[in-house]
Amino acid sequence: MRDTNEMELKFDSCAENEGFARVAVAAFMTQLNPTVEEVSDVKTAVSEAVTNAIIHGYENEIRKIIIRCRIVGKELQIEVEDQGKGIADVAQAMEPMFTTRPELDRSGMGFAFMEAFMDDLRVDSEPGVGTVVKMSKRIGKGRELWTTQSL
């Protein structure tokens, strides 16, 4: 059996598509037989990345967001790309509680949530060019023991 699979999604950067984006990624990952917890983790991380693209990348202008998903063995890799404003100081943006938009009641927890819920997070960004958030998570870490037991 093939152990890789890919999908790509391109959609308008409007708030209504946040729900669509995380549900689409959740549907794609079901082939890894994830737990409810793992699906919730990925949905939260995708939601954070897409929200960042909409609010900060495009500053609410309607343009395109691209999500690329790839399954390699038991690992789910996700890229969320925008061609927006970009981030001048990625390290600062990733600090918990740091936000450039406190007036919008942004908590500054977006990257902290992505980091907490995924195994790996990398952010490539260039001002004026755009941002790509790359994250990955190994699915089924905690279940090996149970599933290999004979009943």
Partner: peptide
């Protein structure tokens, strides 16, 4: 489901 936007609203 809730993400950090909800946290922002509560804070």
């Amino acid at each position: 489901f809730m993400d950090s936007s909800g946290i922002g609203v509560i804070m």
